[in-house]
Amino acid sequence: MSMFEGFRFRRVSSVVHLLDPRAKFFFVCVLFITAILNSKLPPLILLFFVPLPFVLMAGVQREWIRSMRGALFFAFIIFLFNFLFTYLYTEYPQVPSAPLLERSIAMTLRFLVLVESFSVFFLTTSPDHLGLALEQSHIPYEFCFAFTTAVRFVPVLAEEAQTIMDAQKARGLELERGNFLKRVRNYIPILIPLIVGAIRRSLELAEAMESRAWGASEKRTNLYVLKLKRNDYLLVLISVLMLILAVYVWLYIPIPSLTILLSF
């Protein structure tokens, strides 16, 4: 179970899945910036709830919860570091002081908001849409191709690694045996065939690409074209408004911390 689980795409379709990846990405970036601009707890709590409707609309709650659970470990570390370092290097009077605690929680929450928004993005955006978005954002085609190809071959390589592991186990290899160093060495019989295989595969891929006129024209055309639709404009509009609000608040309105709010 890891934080990255939450970044693996599953093929479903919903209003959120159908949104243009560029619009979604813009929205995620705005969330990101807003989270960075705020270091106080109340707005961060609010921000934490913003992506939730998207999670529900996309129907990816389970995957989302899994990724958040995966992020908890890192969140804990961030909390610990914030707490310790702020305590050591600033002059907070006593431990645990409420402001110190609040600040650490706020920093942790900021991290969670970032993970949350990006995982919503990756959970609802198919890799080919993403590749397409990259392409149409004038990122060099070689890079976009490398991206989609990598996504395409990850499951294939994982399967191959499994087969290799089986083949070596069938020859009596015990991966779990020995001390730490021995265990690392146990993986050599798996890594070498995997790497050799990957090299061979990439050569074959290159051949196939060449044979299908790779690099024939400076201006490639594209089977799929992304077009912003009404919902996309709506999302962009919401994002822009959010951004304006965030910047305005950041510049002109000092937000009190929860501790101060509660002490009134």
């Binding site: 996504v151 891929l205 201006k219 055309t221 089977l223 799929y224």
Partner: peptide, 28 residues
Amino acid sequence: FQNPENQLFALSVEKDVAFGLENLAVPR
């Protein structure tokens, strides 16, 4: 080629079939 796995690189069949045409800049 012999190995089907290593000559298909797109994430959907139609995109793969279009690959060569895209390279040749055939209109959409």
